[in-house]
Design a protein around this nucleic acid. Structure first.
Lengths: 247, 247
DNA sequence: CGGCATGTTGATTCATCTCAAAGTCTGTGG
DNA sequence: CCACAGACTTTGAGATGAATCAACATGCCG
C-alpha cells in the first residue's frame, strides 16, 4: 500500500479521529488491490469479510431479486462501502462491481470490529458515518416514493449541478442506463423523460447536460435538503451519487 | 417514569449493555409522556432534540414533499426512532405521529451524544443499532425497486405471517391506507391488487387475512432474507413494520 | 341514529414497461 | 486508418400497470 493512499485514507471522516495505533492496526491487516472494469467485488448474500475503501476508480452497488436488478449507489474515491454488513457480521445486502479499473483498500471486518471496541474515537466516527449512510438511504427512499420519474430525473440533474458548484453545464459522470436503474426506471423511460424536460429548462445531448433555465427547473422540482441532501456548495467534487453507502 | 418502564427500556438492545451509571444518566434527563392518538410528535426538518422510545401504543413515521405524503415505517413497543438525527444533530428526515394513544420516553439528544462518548459499550450498541436501521431501509428500498405493487403486497402479508410464527390466519395490525402508503401505492390500488391475490392463495376480508395456500404464495414472491429481513421465528410478536428505524 | 373516515368498485386517464428496430458511440483488429 | 462488433442510446408502437376521479359501501364513534 502506497504512503499516499495511507495519508488519504487517514483523512477520511471515518478514520481521521482515531488513535494512531488503531489506524496502524487497521492498515496493517488491510491490503490494496487493483481490479479491472466490470469486476464483481462482492455478491449479495455472501458473508461480510472486508470493509471496502475506493481509492481510485468507481464502484457500483446493486441488488437483484428474481432476475431483476437495480443500482443502489455509485461509490467514488475516497468513499467506503458495506460498513454496516461488516459491523453486524451479516450477509451483504448488495453486490458490488467496478465500473472501471479501480483500486480498493480492503480492511478485514474482524479488525474493524475489534478496533472500535478499543478506540472510542473510532467508535464515534463509525456512529457518525453510519448515521450518515442511514440518512442517505432514507432520502433515496423518500425520493422514490414521493416523486415521479420525471421529477426524480430533474432532481438528479439539479443535484449533479449543485455538487459541481451550481454550474449550468456539465457532463454526466455515469452511463444513462445506470442512472435509470438508480432512479428506478427503465433506460427507455429515462431517455423519453429527459426529452420532455426541455419544457422546464433542461437540455441533454449525449452526456452533456445544459440547464437553460435554472429557476424554471428549480420551480419544477423544489430542491429539498431532506431528500436531495444538504447543499455541499460544490466542495465534494467528483461525487456522482450518495457518498457514504454501506450494507 | 415508572420502574416497570425503566426495566423494559434497560432491556432494549440499545441500552442493555451500557454501564449502569450511563443508563442512569440517560434516564435522569429523560421523561415519559402520554400522547393522544393522531398527535404530531416531530416534524420533518425540525432540529433533533430527543431520541424517542415507544413504550406503549404505536407511532407512524412519514415524510412529505410538495403536498404528497408517504408512510416510511411504524414503530411499536419497545422500539426507538430518530436515533440517526440525534447523533448527527441534524434535522429530522421524517415526521412522526401517534397512531393511537401512546406513551413515549424522550431522551435528550445531547445526553445521548455525551454518553456514548464516555461509555464504549453504549457506543458499540449504538453502532449495532444504527447498522440494523440502515439495513432495514436498504431492504425497504430494494423492495420498492425490485418488486411491483402486487409482489410487495404479497411479500408484506407473508412477512406479517412469518412474524407471527408462520400462522395462516391473522389480523392486519394497521389500516390499509397506511399499508398502501408504506408499500408505495394508492389505497385503491392496494384494494384491487389484494383482490387479485386470491389467485396465489391469499384471502383478505376486512382486516382478516387468510393464507389459503402458503406454498403458492411463497412461489409467487420467493421470500428473500436480503429484502424481507431475517426470519424472526415469530419471536418479535407485535411488530408490524421494520422495527429499528431512526432518522 | 347520524356523521365521518375508511374501504371498495368502476370508468377513465396517465405513466411506465415491454418489445422491436434503428441509430450512436467506442474500442479492437485488420 | 478504416471496418466492424458490441454495448449503449434513442425512437416507435403497443400493452400493462397504476393513479385519478367519482360513487357507493362499510364500519366506528359520539
Amino acid at each position: 500500500m502506497r504512503p499516499h493512499d495511507i495519508a488519504e485514507v487517514r483523512h477520511l471522516p471515518l478514520f481521521r479521529d482515531m488513535l494512531k495505533v488503531s489506524f496502524e492496526q487497521l492498515v496493517q491487516g488491510a491490503y490494496a488491490q487493483t481490479f479491472p472494469a466490470g469486476m464483481e467485488l462482492i455478491r449479495q448474500g455472501d458473508p461480510a469479510d472486508f470493509l471496502h475503501v475506493v481509492l481510485e476508480g468507481s464502484v457500483e452497488l446493486y441488488a437483484n431479486w428474481e432476475n431483476r436488478l437495480c443500482t443502489m449507489a455509485v461509490v467514488n474515491p475516497i468513499g467506503t462501502f458495506i460498513l454496516a454488513a461488516c459491523i453486524k457480521d451479516a450477509p451483504y445486502l448488495m453486490s458490488a462491481r467496478t465500473l472501471e479499473r479501480s483500486r480498493l483498500l480492503l480492511v478485514p471486518a474482524s479488525d474493524l470490529r475489534a478496533v472500535f471496541r478499543r478506540d472510542p474515537e473510532f467508535a464515534v466516527s463509525t456512529i457518525t458515518e453510519l448515521a450518515g449512510c442511514y440518512r442517505a438511504v432514507v432520502r433515496h427512499a423518500k425520493c422514490l416514493k414521493l416523486r415521479n420519474s420525471r421529477e426524480r430525473i430533474a432532481a438528479y440533474l439539479l443535484k449533479q449541478s449543485r455538487n459541481l458548484g451550481g454550474i449550468a453545464r456539465f457532463t454526466l459522470s455515469v452511463e444513462k442506463r445506470l442512472i435509470a436503474s438508480y432512479l428506478g426506471m427503465t433506460p427507455e423511460n429515462l431517455s423519453r423523460a429527459i426529452r420532455t424536460l426541455d419544457e422546464v429548462g433542461v437540455q441533454v445531448k449525449g452526456q452533456q447536460v445544459t440547464i437553460i433555465d435554472m429557476a424554471r427547473l428549480q420551480a419544477f422540482v423544489p430542491p429539498d435538503p431532506l431528500i436531495d441532501g444538504p447543499d455541499t456548495g460544490g466542495a465534494t467534487a467528483g461525487v456522482s451519487l450518495p457518498q457514504g453507502v454501506a450494507s
